[in-house]
Design a protein around this nucleic acid. Structure first.
Lengths: 334, 334
DNA sequence: CTGAAAGCGCTTACAG
DNA sequence: CTGAAAGCGCTTACAG
């Protein structure tokens, strides 16, 4: 058990070639005679040698590392995004270095560390980046793409769902279903996603002559739905249509109005969520919701990143991906 | 917008000191005069300088990078583990480089790449590692901890839940509840977790004089529960107690027997899961299950890793964390 | 406390 | 096709 890691020098000595030749054997774009290659490979195998990528990156100026900076890794769609993004980055020969923003929603503190690791690019999901920090990335020519957040009127790449349109779709569907006392439960109140969904909802209601809906402050969690439902159902006049800023909140609402208050969904109160997570389609919920096309968002994020990686100086893009209303029996019984 | 990243040399020139002094300013364990430090810091600030950690690692022989190799990042408890592990590694000054095993359950293909990135340590979660690969890590003195998998009779560190004991607890609870026709739905059939849960279940039943339960092959997914329930409920003699290898499977079973077959849980058939994910406690399910103490498993994993990082050559540990049976109304109506 | 110098493990012109 | 040499951006004895 040799405690020292084999280097290209060790392999060279064993194979009877120069260190340069070993290096060439492990770099794709060099011509090496078949015989030499085999000799080197055999020696490398024997010593358990693998090139040190960190040393290589010093010369090539690329680490093949993409920084993924995330808030709430175990919440909502984050795992799905992580699963797919890591897999596709790997297929493209990149590795993912994962930074957890923790309870802060702010990626700024972690970005310097990501840059110190010489990441070739950055994806920031569900967290915010200051313009100053974005400018720093730009000056280092390190491409940065915001996922599920945007910095309006800036030159920061971003991919978001059309949350405003989604809110409008919900308003329309509720009105069509005969709702007269609508309510909205926010997600994390300061997040642009929750604000946009609310804004669209209010606009949609206003267009049909409705005033502002009842408003409960929540956060993106099942428990927030439970609490919101309790406070609404014990208040003076109960809402008859509840729009929750996420499916998880909506599920908390449904379970609570059904099992704590013995109400029927949708007959007594209808419920609509946002996201269309897999659980929303389950027989136990059948939750009407707004589907976010995460696959399209992921595609777009990776293609923007790819374009900027290939062609530094590419113009920034701020993409909004369309959403779809999904009719289910939590809104209309069939 | 200077396209070139500032180096210690650039900072040195601007600050009028040597490159060594710049280096010392950014390394904690060097004494530098207050005045010099300030001058260097100011210059660094001006140039947007951060030390290149990859270059540093070449000298220090530590990358401060921990490789996390995972199967099914978006399934079961994986997101929870990732959320907590990354946060705690960060607090300890480490970064996480995440490898996605994909549909294979085998980490072997990705470990060489992780080693090439000079990771200081490795956590492999829900994936398998060959003895040969583990030996390779050992010879490089790169600590490796298996999470939720083990290689029995080997010297590979591992942290698992006591799945066998969990299976026994379920058998006992079902017998106490009066179940006479038990059934088991496997998770991924070849996984040691599913096998251990089944083994414990069978043993527990046998101890009470029962024969082998009905057995349906599933996988760790909600849909597997749906399919299994359909096949059981249309078969000759229906089971009256179903133990699913995971909560997610159990929830698929519950929704299906209730909403597709109009049966009552637990009166017509009782259901028990495994894991105790948050959803299991919801009013819509109230799923009896076996609680895995993931926090304890994470603690143990990180402490083993820490010990081996601090003291190379520490003896390997194979830890089994106790589980608890959680009584809920899917087994016994109250 | 600070500087000059060697060296970590690689890549890549430059010759041959 | 192959080797000798310079150099990527740092750290760290060694002197002073």
């Amino acid at each position: 058990m040799s405690s020292n890691r084999a280097t290209a020098h060790d392999v060279a000595r064993l194979a009877g070639v120069s260190q340069s030749t070993v290096s060439r054997t492990f770099s794709n774009n060099s011509r090496i005679s078949q015989a030499t290659r085999e000799r080197v490979m055999k020696a490398a195998e024997q010593l358990g040698y693998h090139p040190n990528i960190l040393a290589r990156s010093l010369l090539t100026h690329e680490s093949r590392l993409i920084g993924i900076v995330m808030a709430g890794i175990d919440t909502a769609f984050a795992p799905y995004v992580l699963e797919n993004v890591t897999l596709r980055l790997q297929a493209a020969g990149y590795r993912s270095i994962l930074f957890n923003v923790g309870r802060a929603q702010d990626a700024d503190d972690l970005l310097p560390s990501a840059l110190a690791y010489q990441v070739d690019g950055l994806i920031v999901a569900s967290a915010l980046v200051s313009e100053a920090m974005a400018a720093r990335c730009a000056s280092l020519e390190t491409p940065l793409v915001l996922f599920n957040r945007s910095v309006p009127d800036s030159s920061v790449n971003s991919v978001t769902a059309d949350n405003v349109a989604g809110g409008r779709l919900v308003a329309q569907a509720m009105i069509d279903a005969g709702v007269t006392r609508p309510a909205f439960i926010t997600g994390r109140e300061r997040s642009s996603t929750s604000q946009d969904r609310e804004r669209g909802f209010i606009k949609g209601l206003a267009d049909a002559g409705f005033g502002e809906p009842v408003r409960i402050i929540g956060d993106y969690a099942y428990e927030a739905g439970v609490r919101a439902a309790r406070s609404m159902m014990t208040a003076g006049k109960r809402p008859d249509g509840i729009f929750a800023a996420s499916d998880l909140i909506a599920m908390g609402v449904m379970d609570t109005v059904r099992y704590e208050f013995g109400l029927r969904v949708p007959q007594d109160v209808c419920v609509v969520g946002f996201d269309d997570i897999p659980e929303a389609a389950r027989l136990a919920y059948q939750l009407a919701t707004v589907r976010i096309d995460f696959d399209a968002m992921i595609d777009k994020t990776l293609s923007i990143l790819h374009d900027h990686l290939e062609t530094p100086g590419t113009d920034p893009e701020q993409v909004t991906v369309p959403v779809t209303f999904i009719e289910r029996s939590s809104l209309n019984s069939t």
